[in-house]
Design a protein around this nucleic acid. Structure first.
Lengths: 153, 153
DNA sequence: GAAATATATCTTAGATACTAAGAATTATAC
DNA sequence: GTATAATTCTTAGTATCTAAGATATATTTC
């Protein structure tokens, strides 16, 4: 007997949603003309705000050498820029270029709108539960990822 | 002024959760000794059940040439096997090797358990809303991804 | 049923992006 | 001021992707 399709076991819809999320990020990256790594790094910079190249390397789990390439490409396309840190000239701060973000913002705005259309179906209490679940889920995954990494061979 | 951190705009927790999901998949892949592409493809095979190499190429948005490499590596590591389709000998069915999946199943079981711990906090009605949101969200993302791809340059 | 066309996967060549190690620059400690 | 540390970049080697075409099998047409 071959493996049964999963997806409906355990906690039902979440696994399905999480699989689609992967494809969504891929599709957004394609649409912006970025590879998946560069898009992930841009997303980290957008979420975190200006940060050093080294911090970006840590957060993305890439080497600093790889980050040099990532930032080169993102800078060439105008999404981020390098800014020298005046207090420590070894450091390079990476920051998003606001003028370049219109297309990304538009994508996320449309996503937010479509999500809002879905949540409009629910009561106040239900919406709060969904939001709470997302927060707790994010925290749980954070811990889980750290656990996985610590046990890594 | 630089770009504000996002994450709390629109529909609050979901964007946060979705960002962590990306890291989770990366961490699981690392833990299994797979690259992210191979892990994604394995996940597709597990979710979908046995499928042809060509179908896997479509679903993963890779070329058939890339899939040859993916399946070679997954097969070498014992996660999947190629089985000739008796009805059409051009086709190669890719199927998971059940005996190899203990570690993956364990990871997902632990994730499911931790998710269950979270959902235990909620009422029946709230749980239903969370589940419903996940399903509708998955469907919405599906449509969104197709829309993005169709508008691609 | 033979030839032409279509389909499915694999192979190859070239491009891209990663890691690991170390170089170059700047900061900190003694 | 010299030694050590920290930060980013560079380089060499490797892995994996795409695009194009080769190979094998199936289907259609005559």
């Amino acid at each position: 007997m071959s493996t049964k399709p999963r997806g409906m076991d355990g906690v039902n819809g979440w696994r399905e949603l999480s699989a689609r999320t992967i494809f969504l990020h891929q599709a957004i990256a394609d649409h912006l003309g970025l590879n998946i790594t560069d898009h992930k790094c841009l997303d980290i910079v957008l979420t975190h705000g200006p940060m050093t190249a080294g911090r970006l390397a840590e957060d993305s789990a890439l080497t600093t050498g790889a980050i040099t390439g990532v930032v080169d490409r993102l800078e060439k396309k105008g999404f981020v820029r390098r800014v020298a840190d005046p207090h420590d000239r070894r450091k390079t701060m990476i920051e998003a270029v606001p003028e370049s973000l219109a297309e990304i913002e538009q994508i996320f705005a449309r996503l937010a709108q479509k999500t809002a259309e879905i949540t409009a179906r629910y009561s106040e209490v239900e919406r709060a539960a969904i939001d709470d679940f997302a927060h707790r889920g994010a925290t749980m995954i954070d811990a889980f990822v750290r656990e996985l990494r610590s046990k890594s061979s």
